[in-house]
């Protein structure tokens, strides 16, 4: 929280104002780190799903589920902050012509459906295996979503990171890195808390069944 708080303070008070977009560009420091964190959570969830399928370890199923849970929260925040930024910059809340936005929405909806699938099957190895396979399919959408903007011919979504490096001032990039580190640390802390909570829930249920 300290790292993220510091990042937000840098973004709002220290980073220089963008010459083109003005004050609205400062949304970049929260929107992009949140989006990258969502990708990281989905990727982590897929990695844990792969470990589950590989080893059949029960703990990996819960870890994959928790990571996807976190990714969905950060995905929703990406859509909301992006929508606010779009409203200031483009004058609309959403643009269906933007592949990057639509692909991110598809990714978000895909992982939202993960929960419907997971809770439509009784707990057990079948649910864990189905969830793991689904989580692995979703991860394919991450590079597609990430690269969509670079593949698009006509776009209005800004491209900041190119092959030549970040297209921004050093102070802006430093602020972005602090915000990214803060967001990733926050996601890590929330993931750890959520996982501990879910494990405790399972043990409580086990204890209740033993005492019943």
């Amino acid at each position: 929280m300290l790292l993220l708080g510091g990042g937000v303070a840098l973004a709002l008070l220290w980073a220089p104002e963008d010459a083109d977009q003005g004050i609205s560009q400062r949304i970049f420091y929260i929107h992009v780190p949140v989006a990258l964190t969502a990708y990281a959570c989905f990727g982590w969830g897929a990695w844990k799903a792969l470990r589950h399928l590989w080893t059949r370890g029960e703990r990996y199923d819960l870890e994959s589920y928790t990571a996807i849970h976190m990714g969905t929260i950060f995905g929703l925040l990406t859509l909301v902050t992006g929508s606010i930024w779009a409203k200031i910059s483009w004058g609309v809340w959403w643009s269906w012509g933007e592949r990057q936005l639509v692909l991110f929405l598809i990714l978000f909806l895909f992982y939202s459906a993960y929960f419907m699938l997971r809770f439509s099957v009784d707990a057990g190895p079948a649910r864990a295996n189905l969830s793991a396979v689904y989580a692995l399919f979703g991860v394919v959408l991450i590079p597609v979503s990430f690269l969509a903007i670079r593949l698009a011919e006509n776009f209005i979504h800004p491209v900041v990171f190119t092959r030549e490096g970040p297209q921004m001032a050093g102070s802006m990039f430093a602020t972005f890195l602090v915000c990214l580190a803060g967001t990733l640390a926050l996601a890590g802390a929330l993931y750890s808390n959520e996982l501990t909570g879910k494990r405790l829930d399972e043990r409580l249920l086990e204890l209740r069944e033993l005492l019943a």
Partner: peptide, 26 residues
Amino acid sequence: MSAGEKYLAAAYAVVLGAVLAYVAII
């Protein structure tokens, strides 16, 4: 406060609100 500033505040408030809501749920 300009319209841009209001939207900027709203974007940061959404993230802060989500974190606070999550802490409350925990």
